[in-house]
Design a protein around this nucleic acid. Sequence first.
DNA 1: TCCGGGGCTGAACATCCGTTCAGTACGTTG
DNA 2: CAACGTACTGAACGGATGTTCAGCCCCGGA
Lengths: 209, 209
Amino acid sequence: MRASPSDLTGRARLREAALRLFAERGFAATSARAVAAEAGLSPALVMHHFGSKEGLRAAVDEEVLARLGTALRDVPADGDLMGSLGEVSARIFGADPVLRGYLRRVLQEDSPASAALFGRLLSGARTELERLLAAGGGHPDADLRWAPFQMLCLILGPLLLEPVMQPNLDQPMFDPQVLAGRSAANQRLLRRGLLGADPPGPVEPPVGG
Amino acid sequence: MRASPSDLTGRARLREAALRLFAERGFAATSARAVAAEAGLSPALVMHHFGSKEGLRAAVDEEVLARLGTALRDVPADGDLMGSLGEVSARIFGADPVLRGYLRRVLQEDSPASAALFGRLLSGARTELERLLAAGGGHPDADLRWAPFQMLCLILGPLLLEPVMQPNLDQPMFDPQVLAGRSAANQRLLRRGLLGADPPGPVEPPVGG
DNA sequence: TCCGGGGCTGAACATCCGTTCAGTACGTTG
DNA sequence: CAACGTACTGAACGGATGTTCAGCCCCGGA
């Protein structure tokens, strides 16, 4: 539960409004005046609190990364290996459309910060794959160099392509059930494609991902 | 071979300059003045030829879709099923960084035109998959609803993520050999993951990857 | 009570934007 | 030759943008 807008500080209200508008329209297409109007405040207050529009962006980035970090930290590390990954993506992507939109915007920039964020996701995928291979015995000629990238493409692809993908679907892409089904399909594809093994346990977990 | 810039009409030079700058910086971040300067012409000429900046965008879109269409039309339809898809993506994405950048920009918009373009790619993936399943006998519990999307995510993911992916790699992502290796890995993943069958031919090309 | 400082504002600044317009140069047509 | 349409330009317009600044209100401390 989040505090109502009027309960927040001016600074926080500006940051929340910026997060919303940046996620919706992108950074360049969002004016400082629009952010201030969305927050019900004066444009000059943006400069007062953040120094510049770029400073506002930095503050929003920091906030988003913090939320992302807590969401990633709360995932149980002892889950059914790759299942945890689906749970993470479901928790992050499914829950908050604003966060989703902002992450989409960030991932399609070419700033060093964006590359670093992707690097973190990449290393996460790598360790997840190593655990998977150690437990299941990797397929001999599976190309392990590209496997983490394939994993990330399967997870991040729908996030990045949401605006063009959704009009070609009849259900909301990030509805929990739809997301669960897609995530399960991804797990099956990776399990069979990289390990050559069918999933051992029940065919698919209810939420699983 | 393409004609040198000075040989082209003013209209064509403006369109080419716009394609270059739109691909590099995005539409919103590119001013009509910048396009005119890149083409060595007057900003007013943009309005004279295209009516508005949006008209210029439409002309560029049309041109890009035409080039894309010819590239897709030239692919042999009798190839080794999914191999043709890798060839197509290699031909389109590997060859022209500008076209690549522009396609990336288009795919992350949410205009109806972008959704329609994705729809075309989706139907292409669907027919490709149907051919694949008819030839190889699909795996019983493969989620055929998501399979085409997975296919597209694997192909378009690196295109969309290039700016954040490249800094985490030591080779140019769209170097022909690297791209061939990645494409082969995608084919193996899809073959094994969706069909449960190992590839019949040679295990993998030397560079693989 | 006075005072200082931070949150906050309205008005203004220079700059860039997309677009308009009058007008020039030029090849073609009559 | 004159008339014309087309490619093209320089200068300007109104408006939006990021940013600055002097000054307001109001609360806590002296």
